[in-house]
Computed example of a mutant assay.
Amino acid sequence: MKAPEEILAVWSKFHDFPMETLTKAWYYSRSQDKKQRSVELMKEHKAQYGITGNCFDLALWLLDEFKKAGIKAYPIGNELGTEEAHAALVALDEKGNRYLCDLGDQWLQPVLIEGRDDAYIGDRLSGFYPAADVQILARQNEVEIIYHRPNGKQSRQTYDTQPVMETDFWQAGEFSQNHVYPKPLVEVRLSYKNETAHWEFDNWKSFLSTTEGLFPDKPVATIEEWVDRIGQKTGFDRQFLIESLNFYKQLNNGSRR
């Protein structure tokens, strides 16, 4: 179910890239024209501030890297053009087998979604998603993922795997970047004991998801404390964190629309 080395080599360039909406808020407040950043601008911001972006940013950047490596890949998305949109990619190996590549949801590695291939396994798999086993239910134009959590709970997600035209995908990204949801979000893959766990900052709460269970962080109340905590997990620039978190505070206070 694992992708071949040529796909993994590109994917591995993003192993320490968080998914976050802080950049969306920060750039929304600073830019006058287009809100969806180019890949070159994303690289500049990463070098200067350590920041990455949301699911559209990560998918577009990964797509660019696949192209440079000569790997066929195309965008996919659910509910594009809405505030609930989610973006990912499908990459193809030399035989034309498809692999789901989702940096936005912080997958550990791509996974085979070609149900007719000999390598396909429909049972639970470990090592693909932090703090959960996954089951891949492949269908013609969609794939359903069942997440098996350590507490016995299950959750499900369905991806529409039909290709999206790149021009339409960029437009969907532009729509997304123009709509700042008032609850900030940061997701990071972190080393924890003998696994890669998932740390999340969501609406002013944070917690670590592991195969041992969920561990909430101690509550904090000030921007400065959140800057310290998020900065320690991500390495993001301190001034960037202050500006983006203050934007969200103002947004929730009704001073920005």
Score class of each variant (00 low, 15 high):
Leu125His: 13
Glu144Phe: 00
Phe128Cys: 10
Leu185Gly: 03
Pro163His: 06
Glu174Pro: 07
Ser126Arg: 11
Leu214Ser: 03
Asn246Leu: 12
Asp102Asn: 10
Gly77Val: 03
Gly53Val: 00
Lys72Tyr: 09
Ala9Thr: 12
Tyr28Ser: 09
Asp102Trp: 02
Cys55Pro: 04
Asn178Arg: 15
Ser12Asn: 15
Asp33Glu: 15
Asp105Thr: 12
Phe56Ser: 02
Lys46Phe: 12
Phe66Tyr: 14
Pro150Ala: 05
Thr82Ser: 14
Asn194Glu: 15
Thr161Glu: 07
Gly77His: 04
Gln48Phe: 04
Leu251Thr: 08
Phe66Gly: 00
Thr52Arg: 07
Asp93Ala: 05
Asn252Glu: 14
Gln177Cys: 13
Ala59Val: 02
Glu195Asn: 09
Lys193Arg: 15
Glu225Ser: 13
Ala172Gln: 02
Val111Ile: 15
Thr52Lys: 08
Lys193Tyr: 09
Thr52Pro: 03
Gln171Ala: 15
Ile230Phe: 07
Gly104Val: 03
Lys233Gly: 03
Pro75His: 04
Pro182Phe: 02
Ser31Thr: 14
Gly104Asp: 03
Glu144Lys: 11
Leu214Cys: 11
Gly152Met: 09
Phe201Lys: 01
Phe215Pro: 01
Gln109Ala: 11
Gly96Ser: 10
Cys55Met: 09
Glu200Tyr: 02
Arg256Tyr: 14
Gln239Gly: 06
Trp226His: 10
Ala91Lys: 03
Ala85Leu: 10
Asp160Met: 04
Val134Leu: 15
Asn178Ile: 01
Trp226Tyr: 14
Leu125Asn: 03
His179Ala: 08
Val90Gly: 01
Val186Tyr: 05
Ile71Ser: 03
Ile51Val: 15
Phe169Asp: 05
Asn151Leu: 06
Lys34Tyr: 09
Glu243Tyr: 08
Asp16Val: 10
Tyr159Ile: 02
Glu174Tyr: 11
Leu214Lys: 13
Glu94Phe: 09
Lys68Asn: 13
Gly77Leu: 04
Trp170Phe: 14
Pro219Phe: 05
Gln140Thr: 12
Gly173Asn: 07
Ala119Cys: 10
Ile121Ala: 11
Lys35Thr: 04
Ala59Leu: 06
Thr23Arg: 11
Val90Asn: 01
Asp57Glu: 11
Val10Thr: 05
Phe17Arg: 00
